[in-house]
Amino acid sequence: MSNDVKQQSNPFSTGGGGVNFETRVQAAFALSLLTKSCVPCLSQDMRAKELKFQNKYDGVNTDDFVLVATDKASNESQLLLRLSMKSL
């Protein structure tokens, strides 16, 4: 028997599950921007100020998205997200 057995992909990966997952996560952060509600993964005081997609051109080492948020004291935070389905 040959050691060159073809690797099988799971139905989630080949059926567009990764794209659907990425779109839903990005939508959750976009909603926090549009509704001026708290930002997932940051403190309750932070509000989204800017959401940038595909940022490799901007010198950020992620191509998924960057969220810029500020609190009432104008402290700014950046949340850099790289979504990966490798662990699923």
Rank of each mutant, 00 (worst) to 15 (best):
K72Y: 11
K36H: 12
G17L: 08
L79R: 01
S2K: 10
N3A: 11
E76S: 08
S77C: 13
G17Q: 06
N20E: 14
Q7V: 06
N3K: 09
S84G: 07
S32R: 01
L51N: 02
E76Q: 13
G18C: 08
K52Y: 11
E76R: 09
T35D: 13
F53C: 10
T70V: 14
L67F: 05
S74T: 05
D64L: 05
A48V: 07
L67H: 03
T70E: 15
Y57A: 14
L31A: 09
L88K: 08
V39E: 04
R82G: 12
L67R: 02
S32M: 07
L79P: 01
L33R: 06
F12P: 04
K86A: 13
S43W: 06
G15Y: 04
A48D: 04
G17A: 03
V19N: 13
K86L: 07
Q8L: 12
S43Y: 09
M1D: 09
V66K: 07
T62M: 02
P40G: 00
C41E: 09
L83T: 03
E22S: 12
S13D: 10
F21D: 06
A28M: 13
T14S: 15
G16K: 08
V66S: 06
N20H: 10
N10Y: 07
V60F: 14
V68D: 07
A69W: 04
K56M: 13
E22R: 12
R24N: 15
A73N: 14
F12C: 10
D63T: 01
D58Q: 13
K6Q: 13
V60H: 02
V39H: 02
A27F: 14
L83M: 10
Q44Y: 10
D63M: 01
M1I: 12
R47L: 12
K72F: 15
A30E: 14
D71R: 05
F65I: 05
P11L: 11
L79C: 03
Q26F: 08
V19D: 13
P11N: 03
V39F: 08
L33V: 00
N20T: 13
N55A: 05
A30W: 10
A27T: 13
L31Q: 07
F65S: 02
C38P: 11
V25Y: 03
T62E: 01
L67A: 01
L51G: 00
K52F: 14
P11G: 00
V25D: 00
S2T: 12
F21R: 11
N3H: 10
N55L: 09
F29P: 02
Q54K: 10
F65R: 00
S37Y: 04
L31D: 08
V66L: 15
E22D: 14
F65G: 00
K86E: 10
G16H: 04
N55Y: 01
F21K: 06
F12L: 11
M85P: 03
V60I: 15
A48P: 00
K6P: 01
F29L: 06
S43A: 12
Y57N: 14
L51E: 05
M46R: 05
D58Y: 09
K52P: 01
L51F: 07
E76K: 13
D64P: 00
S32L: 10
K56S: 05
L34W: 05
L83Y: 00
T35F: 11
F12A: 14
